[in-house]
Simulated assay, not measured.
Amino acid sequence: MKISALTVTAVLAATPLAAQSLRDCDTFEANARNIYGPYAETIREYANGAIRVIALDVGEPASASFHVMVTYPHPEDPWPQCSLVSSEGNVGFGWLNMAETEASYDPAIGLSVTIPIETVSGVASWDQLLTITVNQATGVVTPVLSGNAPTPAPAGSK
């Protein structure tokens, strides 16, 4: 039985997107040796250096090796907190485009940093946006993925 690319694309489009996961930084992924250059792009500082968003590449699996580490103050702790954002569990993203990272601040919710990413699932990959919100008042980090899986191509198109 042959399965067409259109069928694979349709199945992937109907599959829910992998959820992002938020973990503590006590993992091998959050090791300093996984930080990569150029550091001016892959390490971003906000709030006068109080919040750092750091791209990590653990190398394997090659199609999902990128993670994001966030260090930030907590209102009840004198030491910085650290959270690790991955695609799902300990699986990373296909790519992080740190050069096009954008940030905004809303006093009601905190700092929001948006990173264009590539998500890989099976044989398909697609672009999404990862928005990480850091609320310094509460010490809460919230990652949210937005974007869609590829949509099926019309029949007969290339």
Rank of each mutant, 00 (worst) to 15 (best):
T42A: 06
T42G: 08
T42W: 08
T42C: 09
I43H: 02
I43C: 07
I43T: 15
I43V: 15
I43G: 01
I43Q: 10
R44V: 03
R44L: 13
R44F: 10
R44Q: 14
R44G: 03
E45Y: 15
E45K: 09
E45H: 14
E45V: 11
E45G: 06
Y46G: 00
Y46M: 04
Y46E: 05
Y46D: 04
A47F: 01
A47G: 01
A47P: 04
A47V: 04
A47L: 07
N48M: 04
N48T: 01
G49L: 06
G49R: 05
G49T: 00
G49W: 12
G49H: 08
G49Q: 05
A50V: 01
A50N: 11
A50W: 00
A50K: 14
A50T: 07
I51M: 02
I51A: 04
I51T: 12
I51Y: 03
R52K: 13
V53S: 05
V53R: 02
V53L: 13
I54D: 08
I54K: 04
I54A: 12
I54S: 10
A55K: 14
A55W: 05
A55D: 01
L56W: 08
L56D: 01
L56G: 06
L56T: 12
D57A: 11
D57N: 15
D57Q: 03
V58D: 05
V58E: 05
V58W: 03
G59N: 04
G59K: 04
E60H: 02
E60P: 03
E60I: 10
E60V: 13
P61H: 06
P61K: 12
P61C: 10
A62N: 03
A62H: 03
A62I: 08
A62L: 09
A62W: 00
S63G: 08
S63K: 13
S63E: 14
S63P: 03
S63Q: 14
A64H: 07
A64F: 04
A64R: 12
S65N: 11
F66A: 10
F66H: 15
F66Y: 15
F66E: 07
H67F: 12
H67V: 06
H67K: 13
H67N: 05
H67A: 06
H67Y: 11
V68M: 09
V68A: 05
V68P: 00
M69W: 13
M69E: 11
M69P: 00
V70D: 00
V70M: 06
V70R: 03
V70C: 03
T71D: 10
T71R: 11
T71M: 08
T71E: 10
Y72G: 08
Y72I: 08
P73G: 11
P73R: 10
P73F: 03
P73T: 09
H74Y: 10
H74F: 09
H74G: 10
H74W: 05
H74Q: 14
H74P: 01
H74R: 13
H74N: 13
H74M: 08
P75N: 07
P75E: 05
P75T: 01
P75L: 04
E76A: 15
E76P: 05
E76N: 14
E76Q: 14
E76Y: 11
E76T: 12
D77T: 07
D77K: 12
D77N: 13
D77C: 11
P78A: 09
P78C: 09
P78H: 06
P78T: 14
P78R: 00
